[in-house]
Design a binder for these strands. Structure first.
Lengths: 113, 113
DNA sequence: TGACGACATGTCGATCGTCTACTTATGATG
DNA sequence: CATCATAAGTAGACGATCGACATGTCGTCA
């Protein structure tokens, strides 16, 4: 899964959104870093729908135009979490495990790799 | 940066390696998950060299054949770490910050893991 | 009033990294 | 003698992304 696709799914974690809102949410979630191109977004929505990762949850008419909202399916949610897991592991190979500074006791978990 | 490219760089973290060894190391680092196709690897080596992320560090003759070893440049090392950082952050959006399992009130008894 | 930016959906062609499959070649294992 | 691991590489196809374009409304600002 590529980054734009990942952020499309991640944007839907808190609930369904329509296309343009997904672009905004992804940008917001990434601190402005990820800017989904419309070409990327709308083709991704079709693809993810076909794959069963998201589904169309509503079609409202707003200002004479259709607004389609999409939500995560269970499969999509699972795929997203699996991907997050893979990324976290891959990142750890480089960052060396010190991702979150914990204010707890020193409980070193025998890491002899 | 895509996953195969990321793992090419990550494989070189501990020191220079030649092409085939990079494939093996990436597979090992990822627990067998990432298998770099030769077509991916050798084109990636050319690209990363052109980008200044890796550089050719030696050319030995082994069994009548050239063996080229590549090592990370400072730029490559920095790019790799930046990418790991991005991935960790992106993963955290989904995993919810619990990168390291914290002992919560609910599982106090299973503390030692 | 007219220009502009935000909102909103969508298509098209190009690009780029990856993948599959193929080629070439040696040394070891059976 | 075949096959596998090692080792480097190319060619063509594929798929996701990207930039640009198309179309239209609404609100704001000069």
């Amino acid at each position: 899964m590529r980054e734009p696709t990942y952020f499309v799914l991640a944007a839907l974690l808190a609930g369904p959104l329509h296309g343009y809102a997904i672009i905004k949410r992804a940008e917001e979630m990434s601190g402005g870093r990820v800017r989904l191109a419309t070409g990327t977004l709308y083709t991704a929505l079709d693809r993810l729908t076909a794959e069963g990762h998201i589904r169309l949850v509503s079609e409202e008419m707003v200002a004479g135009r259709i607004r389609r909202s999409y939500g995560l399916t269970d499969a999509g949610s699972a795929a997203l979490r699996a991907e997050a897991q893979r990324m976290a592991e891959a990142a750890r190979l480089v960052t060396g495990d010190e991702t979150v500074p914990r204010p707890s006791r020193l409980d070193r978990k025998a890491r002899t790799a």
